[in-house]
């Protein structure tokens, strides 16, 4: 796209851009090195005591202790447990919400819309506190409930948009072959909408995984609370940076792998995903994706263009 905007570079312009690129690399690398050195430099605090730099071995020896890794593992497992339970509930709620939102009867549609708008406009943290205090569920279920309601509302909206984006003929064909309206929605429209929206849904699950760290505030001991608070309190603030970096690395590893999965699925199902736009380039109907929608009798390439 940008290459359209200017003429193809000649030898001079290419050399120029290579030089600028090299200078850019040097500048960025110098910045990173300066930052690392600045963090590593020992510095005197207000009362004259000298603190060792951040990369000093005395700040990292705590990781020789096996118990530290065990605690971090327990924290990560607690995070994943909350994310897993909340993800399943959020998906179920999302399906439920999308059916209510796309319903033909106004008595169902209007209240669902209001409830959805309410949930989507509220901070997750406030919902967690709300559920913890009003229903006194304990911190785990408060976190799970808040996360699944909030993300369920967003997934519900995505699914509804997916159902709405389908060609009308899909519904008409379902009704024409004698399926009831509910069966049409369940067996014809919903599987297609789900598959189209799968990248968005997985992206939302990454958000959900990130948001489990909010339950730190209501007192659930997950990765963040264990890693940067409990361990620091126990071993002393000398190690606070080391613990922070390790917790950051664990979060990045979990989230990046899920994001990568989302992108992979998006690439696989993206081509034939946009049925109304009618993109002709959909060579393989991606059989792996079909597994997500279950035995619905819907074959990948039957999508009406």
């Amino acid at each position: 796209m940008t290459s359209v905007l200017y003429d193809a570079p000649g030898p001079k312009a290419r050399r120029m851009s290579r030089i600028i690129s090299l200078i850019g690399i040097v500048v960025i690398a110098a910045g990173v090195v300066a930052l690392v050195l600045a963090l590593g430099a020992p510095k005197a605090s207000a009362n004259g005591a000298v603190q060792p730099g951040l990369w000093d071995l005395s700040r990292w020896d705590v990781f020789n202790d096996l118990e530290v890794w065990r605690s971090l593992g327990r924290g990560a497992l607690a995070t994943l447990e909350m994310a897993g339970v909340a993800a399943v509930l959020a998906l179920l709620l999302g399906v439920f919400f999308s059916f209510g939102r796309a319903s033909d009867t106004a008595w169902i549609r209007v209240p669902t819309t209001i409830v959805l708008e309410f949930f989507r406009g509220m901070p997750v943290l406030l919902m967690m506190l709300f559920i913890l205090l009003v229903f006194s569920t304990g911190s785990f279920w408060a976190g799970v409930a808040a996360l699944s309601v909030y993300n369920g509302a967003i997934i519900g909206e995505a699914l509804r948009a997916g159902i709405k984006a389908l060609p009308r003929g899909q519904r008409e064909a379902g009704l024409a072959i004698g399926l009831t309206p509910i069966a049409t929605r369940l067996r014809i429209e919903f599987p297609q909408a789900f598959r189209q929206m799968l990248p968005i849904i997985i992206a939302q699950l990454v958000v959900l995984l990130k948001d489990t760290s909010l339950s730190f505030v209501v007192g659930y001991s997950e990765l963040l609370r264990v890693g940067v608070r409990d361990l620091t309190n126990f071993f002393g603030s000398r190690y606070s940076f080391s613990f922070f970096f390790v917790v950051l690395a664990i979060y990045l590893a979990m989230n990046l792998s899920l994001s990568w999965l989302a992108r992979r699925i998006a690439r696989r199902s993206g081509a034939q995903g946009s049925a109304p736009a009618g993109k002709p380039d959909s060579p393989d109907p991606a059989p792996a994706v079909n597994r997500f929608v279950g035995p619905s009798g819907y074959s990948g390439d039957a999508n009406g263009v």
Binding site: K210, S213, L256
Partner: peptide
């Protein structure tokens, strides 16, 4: 891919 809580923790404590 970093939780906001972790970033704010960095800002508020570290």
């Amino acid at each position: 891919n970093t939780p906001l809580t972790l970033i704010l923790f960095f800002c508020a404590f570290l």
